[in-house]
Every structure is written in C-alpha cells, then in structure tokens.
C-alpha cells in the first residue's frame, strides 16, 4: 500500500479523457489500399476502463497505436483531455502483447526506461523501486529478462508503464501469451492497479470473459475494416466474480454479436 501511495503522490487523481473522433485508417500494402478502421467514434471518461473486443486482425491494435501516437490517423482526430494527439507521450503508455523488455538491461533498468528517456531518472529513482514493489518483483531488480518467466516479464512491462504515472494506460492483449492460471491472477492485479491509480484504461483483447471481468464498458468491433458494432455497459461493481450470472448473460449477448453463440 505504501508503494502505491508513493506512485500516486505526483499522479493526477483521475486519468485523462479520451476522444476518438470519426477516425478512419488504412494501410498501403504493395500499392493496394487495405482499410482497417472505418469511421470509429469513441469517448472514454477520465478514469474509465474500456475494453475493445473484436475478431482477430480486425484493427483494434491499430486503434491503440493511433491512441499511443505511434502513427497519425488518415482521417479524423484523437484527443487527450481535449488536446489533439500528435505523437507519443509518456502520459499514454502502452503495454504490448510481448513484454518487449530490453534484454541488455536489468529488470530495474528496464523499469527505469521511461524516466531515463525523459531525463528525470536521477531525482526519481524511488519511483522505479516503488513500481517494482507494486508488481511484487523487488527481489528481481538485478535479474536480466532471460531469467524471468513469461508472467514475471509481463509484470515488469506493467511496472515499466506504471512508473510514468500514465493518464491513459493502453493494454494491447497484455495477457494473451500467458498460461491460463497466470492470466487469471494478473487480471485481478490489473483491476486493483487501475482502482489505486485511477488512470483511464483501454484494453484490447479477444477474450470475452477477460473483457467482462475487467472493464466497465465493452466495445465490440466488426471484422476488418473495424466498425463499432455495440457498446455494452458492464453494470457490475468490483470486485467481480467470474461466476456472476449477469456476466454470463452479457457474454452470451457478445458472442451473439460476434456470430459465435451457436456453441453456447
């Protein structure tokens, strides 16, 4: 708890508002135009937890790259607290499906990456320690990434994101490659991190249960080019129970939207 407070000290009380305003995007592959996002409009209130759900390869991850500012949209605008997003900024941090830790850096130095890039590591070393403690890996500070298990590596990559006190946390299938037991425990961890720190969270997943267990809203996308098919409020309080009949009901609805309810 102490460490969580240490992280929160300089953080704003709530995350930033995110507005995706009529965004379309396409890729040029060998001269052919491949549309990926089709007039997507989406608003997230400060501190909201929104899950983006859709078939594999539908363009959800592209939307996240646009929110992160790694690419500019072909048309439309993205706004963070009313300001147009023009490039990457440490207030919007991404946790990718692969931990992508830098293998030549120790765990500690991986977590310190953002503060080092911003040139404030000298005065803010305590934030790295706090972030590592938050994900329960203080004793691995001097380990190298190849010595970690998949779950530990992903926790380090979470710490590397959280140390920047992001206002928007972007999770791109962060648990997709973990074994199912680790995944369940990390889902609970993500919820508690979100509740403590209050950042706006955007989660891309293709796991319906995960979306329902974690998010306040589940936005369902169509096949590529991605359009918003439905925007479902998950009106259950936290901590949630996986066996909640209301979640099962919603799950059935969502699978129906994805055309997969025949086996339910």
């Amino acid at each position: 708890m102490v460490s969580a407070l240490a992280l929160k000290q300089e953080a704003p009380l709530a995350g930033a508002a995110l507005d995706v305003d009529d965004v379309s995007h396409h890729f040029d592959i060998d001269g052919k135009v491949l549309p990926v996002l089709d007039h997507v409009t989406l608003n997230a209130k400060p501190g909201a937890f929104v899950a983006l759900l859709g078939p594999s390869g539908c363009g959800k991850s592209t939307l996240l790259r646009l929110v992160a500012g790694l690419e500019p949209p072909r048309s439309g605008r993205l706004l963070e607290d009313g300001r147009v997003i023009t490039g990457p900024h440490p207030s919007r941090v991404v946790v990718f499906q692969d931990p992508t830790l830098f293998p030549w850096r120790t765990v500690w130095k991986n977590v310190a990456l953002g503060l080092e890039a911003q040139g404030i590591i000298k005065s803010e070393r305590h934030r790295v320690d706090a972030a590592l403690e938050l994900v329960g890996l203080s004793s691995f500070a001097n380990a190298y990434p190849h010595q970690l298990s998949g779950g530990m590596a992903q926790r380090v990559s979470l710490a590397r994101a959280l140390v920047n006190d992001p206002q928007i946390l972007i999770l791109d299938e962060p648990l997709g490659k973990l074994d199912s037991l680790t995944r369940l425990s990390m889902q609970t961890e993500i919820v508690s991190l979100w509740q403590r720190n209050g950042f706006t969270t955007l989660l891309v997943t293709h796991d319906v249960e995960e979306a329902l267990f974690l998010a306040q809203r589940v936005v369902v996308f169509s096949d590529r080019p991605a359009r918003i098919k439905a925007d479902i409020a998950v009106d259950r309080p936290y901590p949630r129970r996986r066996g909640d009949p209301r979640l099962a009901e919603l799950r059935h609805d969502i699978l129906g939207l994805l055309g997969l309810d025949a086996t339910w």
């Binding site: 992160a68 500012g69 790694l70 990457p88 900024h89 440490p90 919007r92 941090v93 991404v94 990718f96 692969d98 992508t100 830098f102 990456l113 953002g114 080092e116 890039a117 911003q118 590397r160 920047n164």
Partner: peptide, 15 residues
Amino acid sequence: AYYDVARTLGAKPSF
C-alpha cells in the same frame, strides 16, 4: 517493437 516501446515512454531520437 523496441523503438515503439521507447517512443511511447518519451524517448527522443538520440535516446
């Protein structure tokens, strides 16, 4: 992926 990670964390070209 390494560049993407560093850029989202606020890295400048020299970094």
